[in-house]
Nucleic acid binder design. Structure first.
Ligand SMILES: [Zn+2]
Ligand SMILES: [Zn+2]
Ligand SMILES: [Zn+2]
Ligand SMILES: [Zn+2]
Lengths: 131, 131
DNA sequence: ATCGCCATGTAATGTTATTACATCAATTGC
DNA sequence: GCAATTGATGTAATAACATTACATGGCGAT
């Protein structure tokens, strides 16, 4: 089971995010898509829900914003824990993955007998250029 | 330099969070403090800003809510990276710290020449009781 | 007393997200 | 063919979260 065919609205939202150079809020996406017939927030939120489900998009919790996934790999399988650096200067977001962190978190959480459903790792700061 | 004496509003907000059994949104805090003269969101947000600065309170980004810090240690010094498990069932939040994760993240981020200012780690799932 | 600083009070507004309800299209079963 | 189901969509209204702007009050330093 891979990613299903995207609907019209999902494709539009995906396209907007993919062509953006940084994260966008739902309302920013809405504005970008007004020319394509978008009128209400729900059109964006519904599309985002699916795109998040398919793993094509990530939500940045500390920003209330969304980015296209930049994983090199296919999305036929769930990718593990996703982490982000987020530059306060230029808004650049970099997605990365690390097996060691995933393992360590897994160990710590298991020690609490906690069952993980979703892990958020976001690092705010300044990128090389904006230091 | 330790934590300064809290102002009246800061004390009230801190008290509300400390006596709560879980995270509270700013507006929930506001409601709890109406009897003590709170009338507007800003009174809460201003107090929270300071409490966050002093490290007495943490913001849960994935919840838009706030919790009292449960560090055993004093707050005379910054504590390192803070992580949370957040149960979707009962709302229980557990704060924890891990040197290994901190180190590993530090390494990865340095490899990007990124300068960290604040790290968010939040694990949503179900606790032992709510499995 | 005057100034500067910080905490506070209040109102208005801005931003993010959800609920409720109606409609439409494709699919399934009869 | 045609009702029933399912999933996507459209629209409006509202809820939830956060900030801006401006005015006031307390208090220590000069
Ligand atoms: Zn990704
Ligand atoms: Zn930057
Ligand atoms: Zn803490
Ligand atoms: Zn629980």
């Amino acid at each position: 089971m891979g990613t299903p065919q995207l609907t019209k609205n999902q494709s539009l939202v995906m396209g907007a995010l993919a062509h953006s150079d940084g994260p966008m809020s739902a309302y920013t996406i809405l504005d970008k898509l007004r020319d394509h017939g978008f009128r209400a927030p729900l059109q964006v939120y519904r599309a985002l829900d699916k795109l998040l489900e398919y793993g094509l998009v990530h939500r940045l919790e500390s920003l209330n914003a969304f980015v296209a996934c930049t994983c090199p790999q296919d999305h036929d399988h769930e990718h593990g824990v996703t982490a982000f650096t987020i530059c306060e200067g230029c808004g650049q977001v970099t997605e990365f993955h690390d097996e060691a962190i995933e393992q360590r978190l897994s160990t710590l959480v298991r020690a609490q007998s906690f069952k993980t459903e979703k892990t958020t790792i976001e690092i705010r700061g300044h990128c090389k250029s904006c230091a």
